[in-house]
Design a protein around this nucleic acid. Structure first.
Lengths: 354, 354
DNA sequence: CTTAGCACTCTCGCAGGGAGAGTGCTAACT
DNA sequence: AGTTAGCACTCTCCCTGCGAGAGTGCTAAG
């Protein structure tokens, strides 16, 4: 009785999953025959369903209930059964156009990506800022807010910006601050955190220090800020689509809504996926309990990285119930990651045609 | 039978509201007598409740159900019935300490304020960035990302920052960019949008222009950015506490959760309150349907502004079901707005002792 | 291998009934 | 005149039982 995964069984499995994804209802043999005009009778289909269940691709909740896919079933579906449906040219054009319109504002890219992902997939979306692996100093600006308060704006190589205020005892003029920032900028050109630290240590030890008290203080802030930015590499996850995902029938209980909010807010369960996504190219799908996290057992994620290792990389994707429109989600994630990679390449002057 | 609002009736109304806020259950005459050891019998209390209902302070859903407060009841409660309970010194110390720890990072103030408001009041919270009424130019920085891409960082007088990228045909060195930004900074010191616009127009019309093509382009971006920032004065509302508010029993239906998410995300209904909050000092409470918005009929907000008109102002507060712990919410909002005002004053060097 | 038939199981929705809680009214009491 | 006890009435809530419906699994025949 050990069943093989025959051609026909694969076909039936595919239909079950497609139908379940669409209706969110357990699928019966009768429905399958009716809806897809199968040439077999419900009884035959039932036999096949029983085998598929034995093989582990399907389950049902109780004796007299239709079949629902298991994680393993979804996995097979994603891997080899499903039809890939690329976004329509019209959709692609719209998306690309929207990104074009906000091309000058990085924050808005992220927001837009989140919104488009959520709308197109009717799921929640997650997007991280594009970030370089290593923080490198790019530019520093000191701005007098008033006599003894300074706003420090630190710009890193990958475009990330950190602003901090700093209070100081002896007042400085904007002109003095300009001289200080120029000096600091020159000494730290493209410097890594280590380099800045070394610079500071050396100066502390020097007989004739290059930097004054204020500058030392600023350098310490710079080091702290760079360390912070490096630690939280892609850790700050921007999410959207809470409203969209509430349309999905699995969120008819508040309990599930709470779970989802927790997942999105804390990045719990998501954070651990990011290194893995960054390591490889292409869209990656994690289904239900596939990665140990218990709180994610009922959800799937579709993620891809964007950007290039040379400059900055980020991660984007969607998260939703395991019963997710995988083909569409995958296409959307794939396309948007391409668009954003293109935009980044353009910004960093990479020639894509090579 | 036209009832007066006697002392005793006020007392009973206060008890009803306090009890309802705590238990979220309709309040019966029996409960009141039992829980508060009243010297009257339930029947007497019933008579009083009937009068309070006639006066419009209470309702009940059906004949044999306990009383629940009306918006008008809550209003009276907030205005004159409730006991003000300030935060405990320990709570105050904790809060102030938390703010002290992130004092150098404005973004973190906002986040912290949102988190503390939500946690302390067990409701959702809203916070806007501190912003000046009028956008005034403070500082501009041009940073070469690569040959033909520039990152422009614009800092306004009130500390708000806007970053934009800009692509340009002919490559510039960082040194050239530094000269340009210095020139632009000098010409635009403390300038309003109008002033920048005038500067640009004058230069376009001049026989011998002061600025070159790139600088013109940058000025145009500056104008656009400043206009954007001015328009969205306090429009970008940071919210938190979705998880906290789900603990409230009124959010046991997903429908309510959806409403709340919509309110928080869109700022619908909240946005229209902001001008009114900015106009006055002190904590302001809007209960249920008091301001026409239908989608807010079941919710109350407690808001206060913080900061000072001279420099920058923002709004913060909590939002929750009309059955809200008003005393605690009001105290919390009040205290946090004070703390944040102090921080801002300190930053702008205002002497508070005067 | 496929199919028809049938017994069996489980869910879901609905109706009925009783317990419980609370009110409003009336009449008696202080 | 205010207060209280008593009581009928109303409405919710929960439990139970029941029938309809849907779907399966098995068996035996095609």
């Amino acid at each position: 009785m050990a069943g093989e995964l025959t051609e026909r069984r694969q076909m039936i499995l595919k239909l079950v999953i497609q139908e379940f994804i669409e209706t969110a209802q357990p699928i019966s043999s009768k429905i399958l025959v009716e809806r897809y005009g199968l040439t077999y009778s419900p009884a035959t289909v039932r036999n096949e369903l029983a085998v598929l269940e034995e093989l582990g691709y399907l389950t049902h909740r109780h004796t007299s209930d239709g079949r629902i896919p298991t994680d393993m079933g979804y996995r097979l579906f994603v891997e080899s059964l499903m039809d890939r449906v690329p976004l329509s040219p019209a959709e692609k054009r719209t998306i690309r156009h929207q990104f074009y319109q906000v091309r000058s504002d990085l924050d808005q890219w992220i927001e837009l990506a989140g919104a488009v992902l959520a709308r197109t997939s009717q799921n929640a979306s997650v997007v991280t800022m594009p970030r370089a692996y290593e923080a490198r100093f790019k530019h520093l600006e000191l701005i007098a807010i008033h006599d003894t308060t300074i706003l420090m704006v630190l710009v890193l190589h990958d475009g990330s910006i950190k602003q901090q205020t700093l209070t100081f005892d002896t007042p400085r003029t904007q002109e003095e601050l300009r001289r200080s920032s120029n000096k600091l900028n020159e000494h730290n050109y493209e410097a890594s955190v280590r380099a800045v630290e070394d610079l500071l240590q050396t100066d502390y030890a020097a007989v004739v220090p290059v930097f004054d008290d204020l500058e030392h203080k600023v350098l310490e802030m710079v080091i702290r800020a760079m360390n912070q930015l490096e630690e939280q590499i892609n850790a700050k996850i921007h999410s959207d689509g809470l409203l969209e995902i509430l349309n999905q029938p699995e969120f008819s209980q508040v309990q599930r809504v709470r779970q989802m909010i927790e997942i999105l807010q804390s990045g719990k369960g998501l954070g651990s996926l990011i290194p893995q996504v960054l390591a490889r190219d292409g869209v990656q799908v994690v289904i239900g309990g596939e990665h140990g996290k218990d709180e994610m057992r009922e959800y799937s994620v579709v993620l891809a990285r964007y950007g290039s290792n040379d400059h900055a990389v980020g991660v984007l994707g969607v998260i939703g119930p395991t019963r997710m429109a995988y083909p569409r989600s995958i296409s959307t994630v794939d396309y948007i990651s391409t668009v954003m990679s293109d935009l980044l390449d353009e910004m960093y002057g990479v020639d894509r045609s090579s």
